[in-house]
Simulated assay, not measured.
Amino acid sequence: MTALSPIDHLRALARDTLEVSWTLYKIMVPTLIVIKVLEELGGVELLSQLLAPLMASLGLPETMALVWATSLLTNIYAGMLVFFTHSDGAMTVAQVSVIGGMMLIGHALPIEVRVAQKAGVRLGFSLLLRLVGGLAYGYFLHLIYSFSNTLQEPAILLWQPTLGPEPTLLAWALEQLKGLVAIFLIIVLLLAVLRIFRIIGIERLINLALAPLLRVFGISAQATSITLVGFTLGLSFGGGLLIREAASGRIKPMDVFAAMTLLGLSHSLIEDTLLILLMGADLSAVLSLRLLFTLLVAWPLIHWARGRSAAFQQRYLVHSLATDP
């Protein structure tokens, strides 16, 4: 097979970048607008009212329902701002770790479950996984910290934002535009690094090193490097790359399902971890216990799903990539 020239590699990189970026933008831009409208109409407050009765069972004050509702519909950054405005300084490290753990799994659902859907996973499954998974993880942490009587000291905020006036619609639009530009630049960097790794053989070494671990979760070697992207940088980036690979037929639908199930519970282990630590959460909640919870939930769930009939998988878990959902 003839080796590609540097110009050919640059052309391929530009083509792949535009393809992945356009796929994500088609999901993100309409969703951001819809969510902004819902925010203005009081959708976040309505969702928080529905979640409020559950907070007591998790050892949290009812005000944390608004924090999680904001994270679910928007993102972790917005949830953090609500947390800082509603935290009266009386919460323990355990309580902050519980709400922080829930935010790690349940956030930015309108965008991220749509990304998972475009990759080939049923919308209902993705939504259920993130919502129930977030609640289950919160309860999991609450039980551990309550029975062990640990982390009961007052939480210390490691960062306190300066809260200004509510941004205007123009300021909001400019902020979203900056975010979209940043996403484009990150995608360029990601695809360039992955292409370089493939050329010099590092991708193969990564696949060989991680394949035994990911094989436990039913993730094929073809999806290993992309799953690693999702683990470290986030579900949107990993999912965006999976959309392209799945549509090309290089990754089977159930391999995509396995990867997106794993990423639904543990993704963006760098940025999101640091953000929740700034709230005063304990490292156990954002890293070690989160990975343990992911193992306990994802492994049996993925293997259960692979044992279902093709008709069941097609109806409830994955959709045909020949159609655009």
Rank of each mutant, 00 (worst) to 15 (best):
L18H: 11
A56G: 00
R290C: 09
L151T: 09
N149A: 11
F83L: 13
E40Y: 00
L58E: 05
L109F: 06
V256E: 02
L123I: 13
N75C: 00
L51K: 01
F84H: 14
M103I: 10
M103G: 06
L128Y: 02
G120N: 06
I76Q: 09
Y77Q: 12
E112I: 10
M279N: 03
V98H: 06
L104M: 14
L321K: 08
D272K: 08
R11I: 15
I200K: 03
W299V: 15
Q222N: 06
V115L: 04
P61I: 05
T74C: 02
V132A: 10
Y145P: 04
Q49K: 08
L54P: 06
Y25D: 00
R204F: 07
I202M: 03
L66Q: 15
L213M: 13
A209S: 14
E166S: 10
L210Y: 14
I302M: 05
E245F: 05
L317Y: 10
G124D: 13
A116Q: 04
I251P: 04
S288A: 12
L24F: 11
T63R: 07
A310P: 01
A259R: 03
R15M: 11
S220W: 01
R315F: 12
L157M: 11
R198N: 14
L233E: 00
G106N: 01
L38Y: 06
V121A: 06
A171W: 08
F197H: 02
T85Y: 03
Q49M: 09
A192Y: 11
F293D: 13
A247F: 01
I276F: 00
S97V: 06
L241C: 05
L50D: 02
G239Y: 04
L228V: 03
S309K: 03
R15W: 08
I186Y: 00
K252G: 08
I199H: 05
Q152M: 11
V229N: 01
L169M: 10
A116M: 12
I199Q: 09
K252C: 04
L72E: 04
R114V: 14
R195S: 13
A12Y: 13
E271K: 01
G43M: 07
R114F: 07
S126E: 11
T17F: 03
I105W: 03
P212A: 00
R308E: 12
S288R: 06
A56F: 01
T2G: 03
F312G: 00
L13I: 13
Q152C: 09
L191N: 12
A108I: 07
I219T: 12
L177W: 08
